[in-house]
Design a protein around this nucleic acid. Structure first.
Lengths: 137, 137
DNA sequence: GACATGTGTCAGTTTTCTTTGACAGGTGTT
DNA sequence: AACACCTGTCAAAGAAAACTGACACATGTC
């Protein structure tokens, strides 16, 4: 069974951060109706090209859209984007599992980050993890 | 058929923006193991109380956690937080549907935003919405 | 009273994200 | 050559988010 094989913390974080933006949501929506190239997509949505370019590479880094540079009939190079068939589920358990594999550094380009929760000292380990301290009854 | 009744654009946006943050993911993860109060939760995660307070009210505004001010045995007022049993699905279609109901203003308090895509002029309405312009073959 | 615990908020700084405008190059048509 | 398209990048401005420290209040114990 491998519908959604438990995404990495950093992976899911990138997806959520990418989708948590009105412009990027509209970009995904626009690409859901069919592939499109950058200049035209910018005109359709109504934002500037450099801005769309930034949003697109953010979505692509999260694996939500894929772009391919193609050559049209008249030899013009144009970059087409289309949505990737993603499917994520958001539940407390999935978030909890993902947070366990969070490097909190940047992306997947910093191998020196899996220490082991460095300064994780517990000054007063309460036996009841959901009750108030109750200093003296 | 009503497992996830198609969230509002602004609703889903708030959820995604709230979850797209490493600290807030850890907060949800910590609360998944059981309810907890603010001061202790701040110690557990390792962030300052004012910061945790800010993140918590962001998560609560998104409907991901719920807080309730209770009184402990010794009369101290303490605010307990617990995760809300949320369950969202993220697919291109759901994002597309949600983006249709985006106000893009702030929250659900600006009814003057559904103009009709103001400056949406089409200088050259291409008959093929997914093909290059192809000016002259 | 002094201390330790809990709550909340505020102003100010730092950091990050978003956005714009200008520039570089490429092609093909008039 | 000049124009109309397409591509990409950069530096700088603007806006928004994140973070900190100090303050306010409350309660119960030493």
């Amino acid at each position: 069974m491998g519908s959604v094989p438990a995404p990495t913390g950093d992976d899911l974080l990138k997806v959520l951060a990418a989708l948590g933006n009105p412009h990027r949501m509209r970009i995904v929506a626009a690409l859901t109706e069919g592939r499109n190239y950058v200049s035209r997509l910018a005109r359709d949505i109504g934002i500037s090209r450099p801005l769309l370019h930034m949003h697109l590479q953010r979505l692509e880094a999260a694996g939500l859209v894929v772009g391919s540079l193609e050559l049209s009939d008249d030899g013009k190079a144009m970059k087409f984007f289309e949505v990737a068939p993603f499917a994520h589920s958001l539940t407390p358990e999935i978030i909890a599992a993902a947070s366990a594999t969070l490097t909190d550094s940047g992306a997947a380009s910093d191998p020196a980050a899996e220490r082991a929760t460095p300064g994780k000292r517990q000054p007063a380990p309460e036996p009841t993890p959901a009750q108030p301290p109750n200093p003296s009854p």
